[in-house]
Simulated scan of single mutants.
Amino acid sequence: MSTTTSQIAPPRRSRLSGLLRARELPVSIALIALVGLTYAANPLFLSPQGTKDLLLNATIMIILAAGQTLVIITRNIDLSVGSILGLVAFGTGSLFANVEGIPIWAVFAIGIVFGAVLGAVNGLLVTLAGVPALVITLGTLYIFRGVNNWWAGGTQYFADDRPDAFGGLAVDTLFGFPIITLIAIVVVVVLAVALAGTRAGRDLYAIGSDPAAARLFGIAIGRRVFFAFLANGMLAGLAGVLYAARFNSVGATTGTGMELNVVAAAVVGGVAIFGGSGSVVGAGLGALLLTTITGALTALRVDKFWQQAIVGVLILTAILIDRVASIRTARRLKTGAASEEKK
C-alpha cells in the first residue's frame, strides 16, 4: 500500500506545482479579488445588467487579444488591429445600408475575409521585407486608418441602419451570456486547442522561443509567421463585425487607440512580450481584467486619469514579472546543465 501511495503522490504534487506556476493564475486571482472588492463597495456592480455590461465590454477585446497572442508568441506585434477593426466595422455598416436584404452570415464572411486580406498585407510585409513587425504595423496602422478616413469621411452608420436580428447579437442572451460573448469564448477555446494540440501551434511557440533553433529543426518560420498575421487579421475582422453589432454607430474614428489596449491585455494575461510563451486563455483573462478594472473604477467613481495610470502600472508589472521569470528559468536550466556535466 505504501509503495502504491509513493508512486501516485509525485504526479499529484507535479500537477499542483504546475497549477501554481500557471501564468493565468495571478490574473484569475486579481480578477476575482477586484470583482469581490467592488461588489462589497457597490452591490449594483454585479446586478444582472451590470454583469451583462461587463461581459459585453470585454467581448471585443477578448477576440482581439486572442489574435494578438498568435503574433506576440512569434516575437512579433501587430499595432494595426484597431485600424483593421475600424475598416471592417465601417464596411459592415456600409453593407447593411447599401445592400438590401444581405444575409447576416454573408456580412460575417465578408468582414472576416476583409480582415484576413489586411492581416495578409502585414504578414507579407513582415516576412518578405525582413523589417521588424513593430515598424511595419505602425505604418499600416496609419495607412489603414487613412483609408478609413477617406472612405468614411463624415459618414456614420447607426443602429437603425442594421437589421434588428444583427443588433440582437449584443442584446440577446443564451445560458445567461450575450451571444457575442459566447462567440468570443468559442474563439478562445478553438485557438487554445489549436495552439496546444497541433503542430502549427507548437511551431509558433518554437519560433518565439528560439528562431535559430526552429529554423534548424526545419520549421518554415516565414510561413508560420505569415499565417499568424493572417489569423490575427481574420479575428480583427470578426471583432469589427461584432463591434458594429455592439455599438450604436460606426465611422471614421472607430477603433482608434484600441491597439495599445489589446497589447496590454495580452501582456497582462501572461503572454511574454519577448515571445515563446503565453496562452489565448490568459490573454482573454487579461482583456476581461482590464475592462473590469475600468468598470470597477467607474462604479467607484474614480477619476479616469487614475484608471489609465492603473492600467499602465499593470502592464509594467506584467513585463517585469515575465522578465524575472525568464531569468529564473534560464538560471535553472543552466544549473541543471552544469549538474549533468558533473555526472
Rank of each mutant, 00 (worst) to 15 (best):
S6G: 07
I60H: 02
G91W: 07
N148C: 11
V99I: 15
L118W: 09
V81D: 01
G93A: 03
S47A: 09
P103F: 12
S94G: 06
R23K: 11
S14E: 14
V117S: 04
M61H: 05
V147K: 00
I84E: 11
D53L: 14
A58L: 09
S14V: 14
Q49A: 13
P103M: 11
Q7Y: 14
S83P: 01
N76R: 10
V131N: 04
I60N: 04
A109E: 05
L85R: 05
L134I: 12
L95Y: 02
Y39K: 13
L20S: 07
A30S: 09
F108L: 09
G119S: 10
R145M: 13
P26R: 01
I110Y: 08
G82W: 07
I8Q: 12
P48M: 07
A22T: 06
F108P: 01
N57H: 11
K52M: 13
S17M: 13
V107E: 06
I72V: 13
T140R: 07
V117N: 05
L124E: 04
P132F: 09
N148F: 11
T69W: 08
R23Q: 12
A30P: 02
T127Q: 05
I136N: 03
V117R: 02
S83K: 05
F96R: 01
P103I: 12
L25W: 09
R75A: 13
I77M: 03
A109G: 11
S94I: 03
V131Q: 05
P132D: 06
L37Q: 00
Q49P: 05
V121K: 01
T137E: 09
T4R: 12
A133T: 10
V131K: 06
V88A: 03
Y39W: 15
L55K: 03
G82E: 10
R21C: 10
P43H: 11
A89N: 00
V113A: 13
A40M: 00
I143D: 08
I84H: 02
G123C: 12
V117P: 00
V35C: 02
I72G: 03
Y39S: 15
V121W: 02
T38Y: 04
P10L: 12
T5Y: 14
T140D: 11
I102C: 03
T137P: 00
L118Q: 03
F90Q: 00
G119R: 07
P11L: 13
E24D: 10
N148I: 15
L19W: 11
A120R: 02
T74V: 15
T51P: 01
L125A: 12
I72F: 08
